[in-house]
Computed example of a mutant assay.
Amino acid sequence: MADIFNEIDEELRRDKAQIWWKQYGKYVLAVCVVLVLGAGAYTWYQDQQKSEMRALADQYSAAQQTARTGSDADALKAFEDLASKAGEKGIGLVARFQAAGLHIEAGDHAAAATAFEAIASDSAVEQLYRDLADVMAIMHSGIAGGSSNELLARIEPLAADGEPWRYTARMVGASLALTSGDMALAQDYLTKVADDDGAPTSARGQAAEILQAIKS
């Protein structure tokens, strides 16, 4: 008798399971499909990212090799192509700075300033690096013969206390002030670097030497 009741109970559970599956089975399958596809897509994305980064790293190495052994024009094109391909990824930003550096090596400070300006005005770039590019743009604009007074106005906020690139900005500000003949401002910028224990040792030494030369 017990076996009969067990069989009936089993049949009832099976019927309930079938009814439940007919009502909700398609949703369960849909969720399973989404989970599988999601996991597959994520795995594919990770592999794709790794593949892309390896390709970009290889292209960067090739650009560096071109810079060492090839012509300046070819090296510049290699870094510009990499920057265009990589977009705002880290290696793309490095390539943009490298391209600007090649203009400096070639003695074309106006072109270097333009390249740095493009980075500084790019809202997709992290502010820290935009500020650095701005400092570099101002520096090379000054070397290229830009208006010292206009450039001094631009460098002032970048040289303020707490700014990440303030020591470099203050040295640039001192150079611009000397060019414009404002010795007091130049000494002020240089003193802020020379007397700051937090400034890089090399910058403090350079600032102190220039101050001594000015005062002698």
Rank of each mutant, 00 (worst) to 15 (best):
I4E: 15
I8G: 12
E11V: 13
E11S: 10
E11M: 13
R13F: 12
R14T: 10
A17T: 06
Q18N: 14
I19G: 01
W20A: 14
W21N: 05
K22W: 14
K26F: 15
Y27C: 09
V28P: 04
L29S: 15
A30C: 13
A30M: 14
V33G: 07
V34A: 13
V34P: 07
L37R: 13
L37P: 09
G40C: 15
A41K: 11
Y42W: 13
D47R: 13
D47N: 15
Q49V: 12
Q49N: 14
E52P: 02
R54N: 09
A55F: 09
A57N: 13
D58P: 02
Q59G: 03
A62C: 10
S71W: 09
D72L: 10
D72P: 09
A73R: 12
A73C: 13
A75W: 04
K77A: 15
E80D: 15
A83C: 11
K85V: 05
G87L: 08
G90C: 04
L93I: 14
V94P: 02
A95Y: 03
A99I: 07
I104L: 12
E105C: 02
E105A: 11
A106H: 00
G107F: 00
H109N: 11
A110T: 02
A111P: 03
A111F: 01
A113Y: 00
T114N: 04
A115S: 15
F116M: 04
A118H: 00
I119N: 00
S121Y: 00
D122G: 01
A124C: 01
A124D: 10
V125E: 05
E126S: 14
Y129K: 05
R130I: 03
D131F: 07
D134T: 14
V135K: 00
M136P: 01
M139L: 11
H140L: 00
H140P: 01
G145H: 10
G146W: 04
L151T: 03
R154E: 11
P157L: 08
P157Y: 06
A159W: 01
A160S: 05
D161F: 06
G162S: 06
E163K: 14
P164L: 13
Y167N: 03
R170F: 08
R170I: 08
R170S: 13
R170D: 06
M171T: 10
M171I: 12
A174L: 02
A174N: 04
A177T: 05
T179W: 02
S180E: 11
G181D: 07
L185P: 03
A186I: 02
D195L: 05
D196W: 11
D197G: 07
G198Q: 06
G198W: 03
A199H: 05
A199S: 07
S202R: 05
A203I: 02
A207T: 10
I210H: 04
L211E: 03
K215T: 15
